[in-house]
Every structure is written in structure tokens, then in C-alpha cells.
């Protein structure tokens, strides 16, 4: 297990290093942040002054080296736009994004698993067919358009829910969260539905497929033969075995969900790190984009590692390949 974790961490370090070079060089080669930061009326002297203060007058490799030495110490440079340390800006907004992604995931699982289970167990009924048709729709609907339509219906037409922002937050363990206030819930529900819809469709399909497989297993037949209550067979024997693939897939999809939150956050003006990324890309705010990428890559690696370990804990048949 330890060998496995160490190997994975080394792989991750390599990926992060390669990413940092690619992103740094790529973002360096395009666009001139000075053109955006300095007003056109500024004199040549002013421009040089600003370029020097931001370190933009040095050669690329030197800028990268400076960046790298600082990055190892957790310093990704100051944002060109905000004038604050970019890592701080990202971390400040991370709880909002994680809160949104987790709420969306929980909603997708809580709604998706029972529907998928039903569709799998009673796969010939009209209800099951309707659920499957709904899941195809959930897959096909363009995510961002769903968000717009939800705003149109619930914020504009009915005026039930707010269209933007995070609402009232409460500090829990030093982190501002929305899910603990009624007002916060009103704000999070539309973005969470938007973000979680396609995941919910995925979970429905997965739960249905695994339920149909598990149903035919000997241990389920045996449990029925023992005369166990149908509730117990479904709740314990089937559900428990469905949850293994669902946990894995949900975990792995969490990373994609955090990345996808970029869009949801933009639509609902949710003050998370995804919205910050888009704003920073548009303003060529290089340090923030790089800091975002490094943070998200680390997050993805951590999630994948946790899911792999969790998988081996949930399913004792799986052995992590480490020592050979």
C-alpha cells in the first residue's frame, strides 16, 4: 500500500512539473499583460517601470525559474489584477467551489441511486422506461443551457429562487458555507442542480446496469431462497454491491465536476475559483491561471488516490498493485 501511494505521488509530481512548464510557456507566449494593465496614455517610462515591478522584463527562462523557486514555497506570484498573492485568491474561493461540487454530487447520488435501482429491478415497467428516457435527456442537455433555463423559470418567471450569488453564509470551522442557512440553500439549489444533472443521469445508468447484474448473482438468489424479506435483499445484498462501482465513479467524477463548476459558477455568479479562472483568462492574469491549475491538478491527484484506496477498502477482492 505504501509503495503504491509513494509511486502515485511521484507520478503526480511529474505531471505537475510538466504542466507548470507547458502552462507557463504557453501563457507567456500569447498576449502581453502590459497591454491590458497599462493605460494606453502611459509613457514608455511608466511601462518599463511596471514591467520591471512585475518581473516581465526578464527572459522567459529566468521568469520561469523565479516562478518555480517561489512556487515550491507556495508563492505563485501576485495577481496582476488584484495585487494579492494568487494562491491566496484561489484558496479563498475554493470552499465555495467545493461546497457546490459536493452538494451537486450528493444530490446526484441521493436521487440517482434509488431511480437507477428501481429501473434495474423493474426494468420492464413504464416507470423504468421513463427513468431511462429521462437519463438520456440528462446526458444530452447542454449543461450551461440547463442553467439558463432554470434561471428563466425559477428566477425570472416564478421569482422563487435567486439567480446569482451565494447568499448568506455561516462560518463553520473557519470556512464560510452556504448550506447551513435557508437563504444559502435558496442560492445553491439551482447551481447544484445544473452541475449535478448529467452526473445524476450517469449514476442512474450505472445503478441500473449493476443492479441487473447483481440481481442474477448466486448470493442474491440464496438470500431469497433463505426467505429473507425483499426489503432486506434489496437494501442489504443488492444495494451494498451497487455502491462499490457508484462510489468509485462518483469519486472519479468529482474532479471533472470541480472543473465543470467553471461554467456553472460563471452562469450563477457563484464566487468560486472557477469564475476566478475565467475572469483571469480574459484578463491574462497569468499568476492566477497557473495557481488555479496547480491547485486543481493537486486536487485531482488527491481525489484519484483517495478513490483508489477507498475502492480497495470497499471491495476486498481488489489489491492495489504496488509491490510485485
Amino acid at each position: 500500500m505504501l509503495v503504491f501511494i509513494i509511486r502515485r505521488l511521484m507520478q503526480a509530481a511529474l505531471v505537475v512539473a510538466v504542466m507548470s512548464v507547458l502552462v507557463f510557456v504557453g501563457i507567456y507566449l500569447i498576449g502581453d499583460p502590459l497591454a491590458i494593465l497599462v493605460s494606453p496614455e502611459a509613457t514608455e517610462l511608466d511601462r518599463e517601470e511596471i514591467a520591471r515591478s512585475l518581473g516581465l522584463d526578464r527572459p522567459v527562462w529566468e521568469q520561469y525559474f523565479t516562478f518555480l523557486t517561489a512556487a515550491v514555497q507556495g508563492d505563485f506570484g501576485k495577481s496582476f489584477v488584484f495585487g494579492q498573492p494568487s494562491l491566496g485568491l484561489i484558496l479563498e474561493r475554493m470552499p465555495a467551489t467545493l461546497e457546490l461540487a459536493l452538494t451537486a454530487t450528493i444530490m446526484a447520488v441521493v436521487i440517482g441511486v434509488p431511480l437507477g435501482l428501481y429501473a434495474g429491478l423493474r426494468h420492464e415497467t413504464i416507470g423504468a422506461r421513463a427513468i431511462m428516457a429521462g437519463s438520456v435527456l440528462g446526458f444530452s442537455l447542454p449543461n450551461f443551457w440547463v442553467g439558463l433555463m432554470l434561471i428563466m423559470l425559477f428566477a425570472v418567471q416564478f421569482g422563487w429562487l435567486p439567480a446569482s450569488g451565494r447568499g448568506q453564509t455561516v462560518e463553520v470551522l473557519g470556512i464560510e458555507l452556504s448550506v447551513f442557512t435557508a437563504n444559502g440553500w435558496k442560492h445553491i439549489i439551482l447551481p447544484a442542480i445544473t452541475l449535478g444533472l448529467s452526473k445524476c443521469a450517469l449514476i442512474i445508468r450505472l445503478a441500473r446496469a449493476t443492479a441487473r447484474e447483481v440481481m442474477l448473482m448466486d448470493y442474491v438468489k440464496f438470500a431469497r431462497a433463505k426467505g429473507l424479506d425483499e426489503k432486506r435483499v434489496i437494501g442489504v445484498h443488492i444495494l451494498k454491491n451497487i455502491m462499490v462501482p457508484i462510489t468509485t465513479v462518483t469519486g472519479l467524477e468529482l474532479g471533472a465536476l470541480i472543473a465543470f463548476a467553471v461554467i456553472t459558477e460563471t452562469i450563477f455568479s457563484w464566487p468560486g475559483m472557477g469564475k476566478l479562472l475565467i475572469d483571469s483568462i480574459i484578463h491574462l492574469d497569468r499568476p492566477v491561471v497557473v495557481a488555479y491549475l496547480i491547485v486543481v491538478v493537486l486536487l485531482l491527484v488527491a481525489i484519484n488516490l483517495i478513490v483508489d484506496i477507498l475502492y480497495s477498502v470497499l471491495d476486498p477482492r481488489v489489491r492495489l498493485g504496488g509491490a510485485k
Partner: peptide, 12 residues
Amino acid sequence: PAILVALILLAV
């Protein structure tokens, strides 16, 4: 995630 790769590429 595909969206992330595409976003960064287009930013570049």
C-alpha cells in the same frame, strides 16, 4: 477533465 484542457488551450 476535457473541459479544463480545452479551456487552458484556448486561453493560450
